[in-house]
Amino acid sequence: MFTTGFKFYFGLAAALVLSALVYGYATGGEHVGPLTWGWKGGVGEHIGYTMLMAGGVVASTISFVIVAFRDADPSAQAHYLGVDEIVPTATVTGSYWPVVGAFGAGVGLIGLVLTPVLFVGGVVICSLTAIEWMMDAWADRATGDAEANAALRDRVMAPFEIPVAGTLAVGVIVLAGSRIFLNASKNGAVFWAGLIAVAIFGLGVLYAAKPKLNRNIIAGLVLSCGLAVIAGGIVAGVDGEREFHPHEPHGDDYGDDSHAEDDLSE
């Protein structure tokens, strides 16, 4: 159940946390301060307390990561599985999810500052990544045949992946586009709308002409778009929305477009 690596790091964590508590109380810690990281009462000499407690937290995190992925000790796994030795066959397959997860985290951070919608989007992407990551890990060791593992994984996940991916892609484009339009001037909005339309049309033509497009080109396009969304989102978000000055309809002007003043910032 528990690997040697887990035992080592968990033991180290316990020792460090206990040391921090002893050190905290021995150097003037008050009430439950050392137990609550200083929330209720002082922790004593805070430098040593912080170093020891931080070491304990780091060691405990490593211990749980190790036991979660059972990476640290093949002999412990062999014992757990009741076999003499685990043959090293499980090659970790390639996966998009690390890069998607990183992108999701970035979107979430940007959303944390600029707009809750992006933050929720980032959380959704990270959650999906976690699920997919676990499924990949499971599929990698489902059988001894890598091709069968891949087919098994697709059979389980594809019915969920395709609609969710489509929805997310459209959502991201709409959101990013809306940020750009809210920031752009009147003529700028026309330019951006044209550019986006041309880009979508161009991609469609490209795909129609070459259905089996080089996967490196597709990857490059996806990566470029992702970075462009992040960069554009930051610049547009930081710059803020342009100011709107709704023209109050009054008196004789009502319904008379010829006098309507365009107050949109150029």
Partner: peptide
């Protein structure tokens, strides 16, 4: 060890650098 986590670290670094640099320039 943890090769996918290592890949995630590399790409997280790319995204983090992009956010940091663009935001400073902004």
């Amino acid at each position: 060890a943890f090769p996918r986590a290592a890949a995630a670290a590399a790409w997280g670094f790319v995204v983090g650098v992009a956010i940091m640099v663009v935001s400073v320039l902004a």
